[in-house]
């Protein structure tokens, strides 16, 4: 067998391979981009034009040739959208904070302390993550009903945290394992207490990890429909996802307003993606989710 036979470049020249790889990459990226951007474009086009302009002549006219805030005005004047949006912000913020704090505490504990039942606890966390929200929804409904907590921010925050926490705990557990123990030990030897070390040394080093965890729990909470639908039955307490889904049942609300509310729903995740994307990638790399 000749030297180098069977190695890369023996059948197809190296340079051609590189070129094919690059072209394939561009093609796949373009395809994905089309699939993602077209619906978003349709949403924006319908949201920022008046229904009369969009549906003129019996067709759906998707070229944006006029701009109006009419749809948004209808939302604000005729519906509870602002209330829904506020509800969503409140429960999402509380659940994000709670889930991240829980993940940091549990992840640190699982990484740095030995205790009986540790493996069982860790497995239980992962197992809990396998449940779909709807499986948890009915038991949670029964629990919150018995406790008289239905239609409360507290109940929804707890329910949403129950969905996101298993994953965030697991993520932080993985992330803390990448923080060398010697960093902590060196702080202890210099006189810093365990708590102080956690604040001064561990958390700053683990920042990409807990930001990822926060982003994940934000996404779970913000996009949640199931839990909100089950826990909240009062119109005043609906989150934006549930509220928006009910618009279509109403005679006074059309596609224009529905797309406008969808656009509103997209804004917070978009802002987060823009400002925190680097952290998100770093955190998930460690979690083995490249």
């Amino acid at each position: 067998m000749a030297l180098g036979e069977g190695a890369a470049g023996s059948v197809v020249p190296q340079r051609l391979q590189t070129r094919i790889k690059r072209i394939a990459l561009v093609l796949v990226a373009a395809l994905v981009a089309v699939f993602v951007t077209v619906p978003v474009y349709v949403m924006v086009a319908v949201a920022v034009q008046s229904p009369a302009a969009v549906f003129r002549g019996g067709d759906v006219n998707l070229l944006i040739d006029s701009l109006t805030l009419r749809n948004f005005r209808v939302l604000i004047e005729d519906t509870n959208t602002i209330q829904y949006f506020a509800n969503s912000l409140i429960v999402t913020a509380s659940s994000t904070v709670l889930s991240t704090a829980l993940a940091v505490a549990a992840g640190y504990g699982l990484t740095r302390f030995e205790f009986t039942g540790k493996t069982v606890a860790a497995r239980a966390v992962l197992f809990a993550y396998m449940f779909s929200p709807i499986v948890l929804a009915i038991p949670l409904y029964v629990i919150f009903f018995s406790l008289g907590l239905l239609n409360s921010y507290f109940a929804l925050t707890m329910a949403l945290t129950a969905i996101s926490a298993p994953f965030t705990i697991w993520l932080m557990w993985q992330y803390f394992q990448t923080v060398p123990i010697s960093l902590e030990e060196s702080a202890w030897v210099r006189g810093a207490s365990r708590t102080r070390t956690l604040w001064d040394v561990v958390l700053p080093v683990a920042r990409p990890g807990y930001i990822s965890a926060a982003i994940f729990s934000f996404a779970v909470a913000w996009n949640d429909f199931t839990m909100s639908r089950v826990v909240m039955s009062n119109d005043e307490m609906y989150t934006i996802t549930v509220g928006a889904s009910l618009f279509l049942d109403r005679v006074t609300i059309g596609w224009g307003e529905t797309m406008a509310v969808s656009l509103l729903i997209c804004i917070p995740p978009f802002l987060i993606a823009v400002f925190l994307q680097n952290y998100l990638l770093q955190g998930f790399n460690v979690g083995g989710l490249e």
Binding site: S186, V189, V205, R207
Partner: peptide, 28 residues
């Protein structure tokens, strides 16, 4: 370890990556 007046240099060096050299040295 906090109560003994020891200083230790670790094999892995163990500098805090998020602090400048000045803050690293001065942390204790």
């Amino acid at each position: 370890p906090q109560d003994r007046n020891c200083a230790m240099v670790f094999q892995s060096i163990a500098l805090y990556p998020h602090m400048t050299v000045r803050r690293n040295i001065g942390y204790g």
